[in-house]
Amino acid sequence: MGRPLLVAALAISLSPLAGVACSKPAEEKKAVAAAELAAPADVKRVDIAVNDSGFSPSTIELKKGEPVVLRFTRTTKSECLKAIAIPDLKIEKDLPMDTPVEVAVTPEKEGKMVLQCWMAMVKATINVVGS
């Protein structure tokens, strides 16, 4: 009997938060994206276009232990490419249209990793080589 009340109380207490998270104004979202661009200037950056053809380049070579910023710019309206994932690094990131999004990574082991859309249908390869 106490459990339904707890669930109801939790739902009521969380409902205002759900509305706040989903109702960010577009200007605030752009400010968040701009804040993500604030990576150190001396870090290597790799530009990745996200378009109707997928990821370009489709193969990215990185060095083990070297910090790098992957800068994604999405120009396609494809719902599949509205977000990316790098499962091996436990990275997931939304990609708003026409807004550069930077993702800082430091690969710690050699080998191949998958860069993919959030639906795992469009893929690219990250090849990590020894330093």
Rank of each mutant, 00 (worst) to 15 (best):
E110T: 09
P57I: 03
L5V: 05
K29E: 13
M1H: 14
V129A: 01
M97Y: 09
L89T: 05
E28Y: 14
S23N: 10
K123I: 08
V69E: 10
I86K: 13
D88Q: 15
P40H: 00
E66C: 15
V69T: 10
T76A: 01
P57H: 05
D47A: 08
R71Y: 09
T75L: 11
P57C: 00
P4F: 00
A49T: 02
V101G: 11
K63V: 12
M119Y: 13
T73F: 01
I48P: 07
I60R: 14
G130W: 01
A38D: 15
V32G: 02
R3F: 12
A33K: 02
A104C: 07
R45K: 02
V129D: 02
S15C: 06
K77C: 07
K29C: 03
D42R: 10
L17M: 05
L10H: 03
P4M: 03
M121T: 15
V114I: 08
V122S: 14
A49P: 05
S58M: 01
D52H: 05
K44W: 07
C80A: 11
I12P: 09
K90G: 03
G130S: 01
L37K: 13
K63I: 14
P57A: 01
A120W: 03
T99Q: 03
K24Y: 14
P107K: 02
W118L: 14
N127M: 07
N127A: 13
V69C: 07
D94K: 09
A8V: 00
L62P: 13
S78F: 12
A31N: 08
S131A: 06
E28I: 12
F55E: 00
D88V: 14
C80W: 06
R45I: 02
K63A: 15
P25T: 15
P16H: 02
D47Y: 06
A39R: 14
T125Y: 09
A34M: 04
T73N: 12
V122I: 13
L62H: 06
W118C: 14
V7W: 04
D98G: 02
K64E: 14
S23Q: 12
N127S: 11
T106Y: 09
V114L: 08
L17S: 05
G2T: 15
K93N: 11
V50I: 01
K24E: 15
K77L: 10
Q116H: 03
V43L: 11
E79Y: 10
V122K: 15
S53R: 04
E110V: 08
N127H: 01
P100N: 08
S131D: 04
K63E: 13
V43R: 11
E92W: 01
A26V: 10
V50Q: 09
I91N: 05
K123G: 11
